[in-house]
Computed example of a mutant assay.
Amino acid sequence: MARRRNRNRHRRGRFGFLYKMLSVLAICGAIIAALTLFFRVDSIVITGEERYSEQEIVDATGLRIGDNLFLLNKYAIAEDLLKKLPYITAVRINRELPDTLTIDVTESAAALAAVQDGSAWLISPDGKIVEQRTPGDAGKLAELDGCRLLAPSVSTQIALETERADQQESLLALLAALDGADMLQNVQAIHLDDLTVLRMDYAERFTVELPYNANYPYKMRALQAILDSGRIESNETGTIRMTGSDGQNVFIKG
């Protein structure tokens, strides 16, 4: 009798565990069915767009009204936007229940033009190639010279030769500092031909010499302070040498 009771208890235990598992699976199935049936995209809201239209952005996502709100891959959508619409530099996607998807984009502008092999490659402040044009159609963008881009292609980051890694890193850091200080519009050219000194044509009056691997936000604040100090006459041109290890800056007329 004792053995039979133990067998019955064991059998009930196994059926109880199976019942719990089936219940969990049924609940999960119901949740998945509800998400699939009821949470569908009825509205796509685009914000932050300037260069591209809302329709261009929606088309680039591949989304359609009626797509499931929870099954879509936000990261894949963002990656597609960054590739297909190169002037977009950041994407943020949010689901707003029950049926709305919001896509907030951050767009950039071209900051530099690198002319190479019959093409002008337009480069954003964060180093992304945003457009390919003919050399005569680059507008008034600052020119990047003294280097060669490796396999340039729209929607990719610029790359220089391996031996110019310091120059590439310094260029990107300088662009970020200029952009952050709202000084990019005053740049006419950036020259990387000298492996010891980075040179920048600035304000149509000055050549600014900078060291590689410098604290460029600090250097740009120092440059602005020099220009605001009144020590340089408004009609003077020359070279502002900011390469001293002691932090001293020198203005050379001419």
Results as ranks from 00 to 15, higher is better:
L144Y: 01
K128H: 05
K83S: 13
V105C: 04
Q224F: 07
L149M: 10
T156F: 08
V130S: 02
G48D: 01
A142I: 03
A60D: 00
L97E: 10
M220N: 03
S170M: 09
R3L: 12
Q55V: 06
I31G: 07
I88R: 02
M220V: 15
F251N: 00
D126M: 11
T162R: 14
R133L: 10
N94R: 15
A177P: 03
I46E: 02
T61P: 00
V154N: 09
P86G: 09
S23Q: 12
D117H: 12
L85K: 03
V24L: 14
K84H: 08
N215L: 10
D179I: 05
D59H: 05
D145A: 13
L178E: 00
R9Y: 12
L160S: 08
K253P: 08
A2K: 14
M21W: 11
E169W: 06
G146F: 03
A26Y: 07
R12D: 11
N6I: 15
G62S: 05
E169H: 13
F39D: 03
A142F: 02
E50I: 13
K140M: 11
V91N: 01
D201F: 00
V91P: 00
L72G: 03
R92S: 15
E209V: 03
A176N: 09
A78P: 02
G29A: 12
I46N: 02
E209H: 10
I232Y: 00
R241M: 10
E209I: 02
M242E: 05
T156E: 14
M242R: 05
S229V: 06
D59R: 09
S43T: 15
Q248C: 11
T156A: 12
T106H: 11
I103A: 04
V24P: 01
A76R: 15
N215M: 08
I88E: 01
G139F: 04
E163D: 15
P135A: 04
A176Y: 03
N94H: 14
I46C: 04
Q185W: 10
V187F: 01
T237H: 02
L223H: 01
A26E: 06
R11M: 11
L35H: 05
G48S: 03
L122D: 01
I123H: 00
L69I: 05
L82N: 05
L171A: 07
K219T: 04
Q224M: 11
F17G: 11
L141I: 03
